[in-house]
Computed example of a mutant assay.
Amino acid sequence: MDELIDVLDAEGNYTGKSIMKSEAHRKGVFHPSIHVWLYTKNGEILIQQRATNKDTHPGLWDVSVAGHIGAGEDVTESAIREVQEEIGLEISSKDLLKIGVFKYSHQHHKDLLDCEFHHTFLCELKVPLATLEMQESEVADLSLISIDKLEKELESKIHSKKYVPYDMDYYNTVLNAIKQRL
């Protein structure tokens, strides 16, 4: 779905301009997004398999919830909205812990350069996996994986290919932040 998003400079500052998401991806324009990593108190992380029709990383396993921040939309409100839309879970701002903003750039093909700043949150998952409702246009599957297993798979040359290729520093920052909350 195309939407109007804010334009950021290469340091992540808002420029006061907006652009359609499709144009930002075509031109490699930086824009803000949210990542919400949901975890359980017993050390499992909710991961989502991206729908196969997605233009970026189709079919790969990814952060629990991710999405673009609409033009002029509050970052936290965007995170709450995306969690509701993608997995049918109602949360509030008090459920979210922001752990940072991370620069990301990935050339998918000649007409798609994704340049984002991920506003990244943690949120404890307090409901059973079976109660979550996947947004079919975004999510192919949901799974809980232990932190240890995820770390091993991300370090494996074979198993890591099934995950979105974020920088390992990003993954390690997220996993360490979750471990501190357990």
Rank of each mutant, 00 (worst) to 15 (best):
L8P: 00
E116I: 03
H106G: 02
S105N: 07
E85I: 03
G100D: 04
M168H: 09
S160Y: 06
I5G: 03
Y104G: 09
D55Y: 07
L125Y: 08
S137K: 13
M20V: 05
K152W: 03
E124H: 10
H57K: 10
S33K: 03
A24W: 00
D167N: 15
A177D: 03
L38R: 06
E151T: 14
I80Y: 03
I158T: 08
E155P: 04
I99L: 12
L8R: 00
M134R: 05
H35E: 12
E44I: 07
S78A: 15
H31F: 13
W61I: 01
V7D: 08
A130E: 14
G88D: 04
Q49K: 15
R26F: 00
H159T: 07
V29H: 04
Y14L: 13
T173R: 06
I34S: 11
G100V: 06
T173H: 06
V139K: 01
W37S: 13
A140M: 13
Y170S: 04
H118D: 12
S33D: 00
V127F: 02
A66H: 04
E86T: 10
L8Q: 01
I99S: 09
V139M: 06
Y163L: 05
S92W: 01
L182Q: 12
H106A: 07
N176G: 14
M20P: 04
H109E: 14
I147C: 09
N176Y: 07
S160E: 11
I91C: 13
K98G: 04
I145K: 14
H109R: 15
A177C: 12
A10W: 14
N42R: 11
C123L: 02
D167T: 15
D74K: 15
L8T: 00
G70S: 07
Q48P: 00
E116A: 11
K110P: 01
E151S: 11
G88K: 12
E138K: 14
E11M: 09
R181T: 05
H159G: 03
T56E: 10
L150G: 09
H31S: 15
T120G: 05
E3Y: 05
D2C: 07
A177I: 04
L46S: 06
L142F: 07
L182D: 02
I178R: 05
K126M: 05
F102Y: 13
L46D: 02
N53R: 10
A177F: 02
S143C: 12
H106L: 05
T40A: 10
M134L: 07
A24N: 10
L132N: 09
H106Y: 08
N172Y: 08
T56M: 06
I145W: 06
S18V: 12
L144G: 11
D74A: 12
L97E: 11
I80N: 00
L142N: 14
L4A: 11
Y104N: 15
S143F: 11
D167A: 14
K110F: 00
H25K: 14
I178A: 04
D141P: 03
